[in-house]
Every structure is written in structure tokens, then in C-alpha cells.
């Protein structure tokens, strides 16, 4: 009996994990082959951050004050920009339907796709953020907070944005609609993300903000894939 359950486990577990890994690898490979898709959000991130000194004021003191918000808003918009393509090409060539049909739970498939998306946008954005911080005269003490908050916040942005992408994947003009659906949901992440950076700049303890960002990420990890899966099923069947 014991042996049998063990065998079943051995058969099942690799199948689950290999499905996850296969989707992750495939998405990363696809992104690597289309490098412009990988770079565009990063260039956009840089450009949006450049607009603020031009549009508002190049004063170092003023820029240092608004830098946390500007970097966060730019990261949020860059994530949003890349969101539309998350499921679109899979939907158009029929891969998405196959994913819905395959025996692996959709929860894991979706998780792998979102993870791949984050590795292609959120992670590079986080790594690039100090550059923007320097451009906007963010004090050195704030850099750690900025990177830590982005590291914890951008996966939540990807998870929540994927709900919007899944809901609009069947529509011709999903781009603007995604922003309408998703931006209000991004507000808590933005608030605590910038809060963490500001706390780091002023030398206040970060723990509270980081804990809240982490809590939102955990909540997103647990709940968002269900919403994404449900939305995908609705979009594909409709």
C-alpha cells in the first residue's frame, strides 16, 4: 500500500513540476528569441522617468523628493505596457486552448507564465531602477529600499495585471482596456512601494512596508492564479 502511494507520488510529482518548468522554459525561450519585446518595456521605463525632469523641474532637490514615486509609477506603467502580450500570441495561435485542455492544473501553467513574465519585465526593471534613482537624484540610502520594494512589488503587479490580460485576451483592442481594469487594483502596491522607499530615504524602519508588500504578494500568489484561470476559460470559451 505504502509502496503504491509512493509510486503514485513519484509519477505525479514530476509531471506537475515538469509541466511548470516546460511552460516557464518555453516562455523564456520565446522572449529571448524576440529581444525587442524584452527591451521595449525597459526603454519605456527609462523614457517615462526622463519625462518628469523635463516636464516638471530639473531641480535636484525637487527630483530627489519625487524620485520614489516617479520610479514606481514608471515601473508600474512599464509592467502594464508589457501585460497585453502575456496571453495574446498563445491565444492567437491556439496554444492557449491546448494549455486549457492539458491534464496539468491550469493554476500551475498560469503561475509559470506569470513567473516568466516577471522574469522578463519585473526583474530587469528592478535591476535597472538604481540607474533611474541616480538620474533622479534619489539619495543613496534609498536605493536599497527602492530595489527591495520593487523586488517584492513587481511580482504582484504581474499577477494582478495577468488577470486583466486574461479577461481581455479575446478582444481586438485590449490595450487600453487592460489599463482601465488593472490600474485601480495597482494602487495599494504603489502606495506601499513608494512608502518603503521614502522610509528608507528618511532612515525610518522598512520592515512594516516590506511585510505589507510581502503579504500582498502572498495573497496574490494564492488568489490571482484562480482568477486568471477562470478569466482564461471564459475568454477562450466565449
Amino acid at each position: 500500500m505504502n509502496l503504491q502511494t509512493n509510486q503514485q507520488l513519484e509519477i505525479k510529482e514530476p509531471a506537475l513540476m515538469s509541466g511548470f518548468v516546460a511552460v516557464l522554459k518555453r516562455d523564456l525561450m520565446l522572449a529571448y528569441r524576440r529581444k525587442s519585446d524584452l527591451l521595449n518595456p525597459l526603454i519605456f521605463f527609462l523614457m517615462v522617468a526622463t519625462l518628469f525632469p523635463l516636464g516638471v523641474s530639473p531641480e535636484p532637490q525637487f527630483l530627489a523628493e519625487v524620485a520614489p514615486g516617479v520610479v514606481w509609477v514608471a515601473a508600474l506603467l512599464a509592467t502594464l505596457l508589457s501585460m497585453d502580450g502575456l496571453f495574446r500570441s498563445d491565444y492567437e495561435d491556439g496554444t492557449l486552448e491546448q494549455m486549457l485542455l492539458c491534464p496539468q492544473p491550469l493554476f500551475l501553467t498560469v503561475m509559470a507564465k506569470v513567473l516568466a513574465h516577471w522574469m522578463m519585465t519585473g526583474l530587469p526593471l528592478t535591476l535597472m531602477a538604481p540607474l533611474l534613482g541616480v538620474m533622479l537624484f534619489l539619495p543613496g540610502e534609498g536605493m536599497g529600499g527602492l530595489m527591495l520594494s520593487l523586488l517584492l512589488g513587481t511580482p504582484t503587479l504581474s499577477l494582478v495585471g495577468a488577470i486583466g490580460a486574461a479577461l481581455t485576451v479575446g478582444l481586438r483592442k485590449g490595450g487600453v482596456l487592460i489599463s482601465l481594469l488593472v490600474l485601480p487594483l495597482y494602487i495599494p502596491v504603489l502606495i506601499f512601494g513608494t512608502g518603503a522607499v521614502q522610509a528608507a530615504v528618511t532612515g525610518l524602519p522598512l520592515v512594516g512596508f516590506v511585510a505589507l508588500l510581502g503579504a500582498m504578494l502572498v495573497l496574490g500568489l494564492v488568489l490571482a492564479p484562480f482568477a486568471i484561470s477562470a478569466a482564461l476559460r471564459i475568454s477562450v470559451s466565449g
Binding site: 482568477a227 471564459i234 466565449g238
Partner: peptide
């Protein structure tokens, strides 16, 4: 779709 969105 609207129901999923309003639940989220």
C-alpha cells in the same frame, strides 16, 4: 468576465 473582475 465582468463578474470575475468585480470579485477581484
Amino acid at each position: 468576465s465582468a463578474a470575475v473582475l468585480s470579485l477581484v
